[in-house]
């Protein structure tokens, strides 16, 4: 059973990691806790769903190991839509408001409600799913390792790895990445040394929201799509970001992985019911914070 739980944990962690990165970026560069982040995930998931018929018509009907190619087109549309929505929100709400960290935090709760209400108006409250058939277990993995792995699981995990690796390359080896790291470290100093912080903030929204959108699409692919899907996950994502060390992008990745694994490995802990999996994830967070009060990578440079 434990092997299966580890597989489940890796899939679940991938989604949490993608969402945590964006939240951490906004925290370190935009300097506030963005409560609309979970609903940004839902925006990505729903736009990808709405774009599915169009993308299916454009992209050839090729399947990769039983998984349709068009889905990746819809994924990109969903990521782009989440990014556009976040940038528009920055221009329409956050920038004109120019409030304190607490003011922006409260504002983001309003933004979250607005996103969700718009999704409800457009798509209704019910559950939906992507028109991708659920293939069931991959037979050779089942017979070789005795665990159930589906094509969806593989797509979610590998796409997440590609996205995280691309982000790593961007942060480390491009000028924009260096600017972002500089601004996360010390916004004032970055501005004084000639970095256009406005551009960096837009880049932050694009990257953070696109990754959140991808997380939302994968969450929808894994289970179902509904307006509250991201909001329900937001608390765990916050836990991941705090655990990783607030503001550290690499910390958020590690934190997301730890929280996701703790959540899914709960059934292996004797005498603790699975319904407490969120509580176990938070206990892991508290335990690690007791040892490292700034989080796993807190205090280090982004």
């Amino acid at each position: 059973m434990v092997a299966q739980l580890i597989v489940n944990g890796i899939v679940y962690s991938s989604i949490i990691v993608l969402a945590s990165i964006g939240l951490s970026l906004v925290y370190s560069i935009g300097n506030f806790a963005n409560f609309a982040h979970g609903d940004t995930m839902a925006v990505g998931a729903f736009v990808a769903l709405a774009s599915a018929p169009l993308v299916q018509a454009i992209v050839p009907g090729v399947t990769i190991a039983g998984f349709p190619l068009w889905f990746f087109g819809a994924l990109l549309v969903g990521m782009a839509a989440a990014a556009v929505v976040a940038v528009v929100t920055e221009y329409v709400v956050y920038r004109p408001l120019d409030s304190s960290a607490i003011g922006l935090l409260i504002t983001s709760i309003g933004v979250a409600l607005a996103y969700r209400a718009l999704l409800l108006m457009q798509f209704g409250p019910g559950q939906q799913s992507y028109p991708v058939s659920r293939g069931g277990r991959i037979p050779w993995v089942e017979s070789a390792l005795g665990v159930s792995v589906t094509a969806r699981d593989v797509v979610i995990v590998f796409s997440s790895i590609v996205l995280v690796a691309s982000l790593h390359a961007m942060l480390q080896y491009t000028t924009l990445g260096r600017k972002m790291r500089a601004m996360a470290d010390n916004a004032e100093l970055a501005r004084v040394s000639g970095i256009r912080t406005g551009e960096v903030i837009i880049a932050m929204w694009v990257i953070g929201a696109a990754l959140a959108g991808a997380g939302g699409v994968f969450l929808g692919l894994d289970t179902i799509i509904r307006p509250r899907m991201g909001f329900e996950l937001l608390l765990l994502i916050f836990a991941a970001v705090i655990l990783g060390g607030i503001g550290s992008v690499y910390g958020a990745m590690l934190g997301g992985f730890a929280i996701g694994m703790a959540h899914e490995l709960t059934p292996a802990i004797p005498f603790i019911g699975t319904e407490y999996n969120a509580a176990v994830a938070f206990l892991v967070m508290i335990a690690i914070l007791l040892v490292r009060p700034n989080g796993i990578l807190g205090g280090d440079a982004t």
């Binding site: 739980l5 489940n8 679940y12 969450l219 899907m229 699975t274 319904e275 999996n277």
Partner: peptide
């Protein structure tokens, strides 16, 4: 055993029931 409403995954419950 109970499960939480609107959970984003019930694989843990399924693993325990399958056990």
């Amino acid at each position: 055993e109970p499960h939480e409403p609107e959970g984003s995954s019930y694989r843990g419950e399924i693993a325990e029931m399958g056990d």
